[in-house]
Design a protein around this nucleic acid. Sequence first.
DNA 1: GCCCAGATAATAATATTTCTTATCTAGGAT
DNA 2: ATCCTAGATAAGAAATATTATTATCTGGGC
Lengths: 150, 150
Amino acid sequence: MDTSGSELSVLSAALKGAGIRMTHQRIEVFSELQASHGHPSVTEIYEGVRKRLPSISPDTVYRTLRLFSELGLIIPHSSTSSVTRFDVNVHEHHHFVCTRCSRIFDFTSSSIDPLEVPREAESFGEVQGVQLEVRGICRDCLRRERTQEE
Amino acid sequence: MDTSGSELSVLSAALKGAGIRMTHQRIEVFSELQASHGHPSVTEIYEGVRKRLPSISPDTVYRTLRLFSELGLIIPHSSTSSVTRFDVNVHEHHHFVCTRCSRIFDFTSSSIDPLEVPREAESFGEVQGVQLEVRGICRDCLRRERTQEE
DNA sequence: GCCCAGATAATAATATTTCTTATCTAGGAT
DNA sequence: ATCCTAGATAAGAAATATTATTATCTGGGC
Ligand SMILES: [Mn+2]
Ligand SMILES: [Mn+2]
Ligand SMILES: [Zn+2]
Ligand SMILES: [Zn+2]
């Protein structure tokens, strides 16, 4: 659970650079993330931090993880938006996922299709499908953010 | 909102093949999916179907979409599991996502890395990252399902 | 040490998804 | 066509996940 000083300096630099305070809560959430394996859920981080900061609230963990995502310290896995969405198009295609509004855009690509499954992926189990997932900020969100900057 | 007969025959075949009943609710959810664009959420499907079947319950929509996913008529986008997960590893890597237990496994691939962003994806906005997402059933889930079949 | 904008804890509220149970119905048997 | 029942649904409660509100607290510049 103890995070090395070099890792903490990453947090320190990121927060200082954005003019954001270095709080106990943020340090502990960051440490918990570093100590975690795989792709931790909010609850897992919350329960871990709670052992050292028993009074921390779930809200703070949510807020902090959102902040860290904005700072690029962590990456939310796919749609953070808490609604399940379905793809009616079952043919092979790829996705551009907007990290702001979480809309999903389809595309195919002449340069990479048909996309083959890397050997490394097959060792995990039975493959059902493979697709490219491009994360980014969509045109609409870019325009909206530029407008607000004025 | 009206679905062509040929599309409905896909539903009919899928249900009959699995020995599952063809109900009003399933037909309307299926039609709504066909009429939808993009990647509809459960609520969007529910609201749409409700115009024609005012008494349908959210539970039935959830249940039906889960069934359709199992039949391969639709594909749930990424982790259907309703918990947000974060990637602490911000370096470029790829994912194997288990469609049963929704666990996520990391991998890199000498054959495709570094992965470049297809030209077609750049038109949607500002690209932040790209990764391969392999969907499948992990070893643990495969073993568990084989055991239960006895 | 003082100060206060920014951050947090507690709590309530909202949103999403699943469970329980009584009722209903699709479709095979008669 | 009617009967029958396993499977399906509706309604409502419950469990989870997430966000909003507000009073209180604190990091860090002075
Ligand atoms: Mn798609
Ligand atoms: Mn990962
Ligand atoms: Zn967007
Ligand atoms: Zn699995």
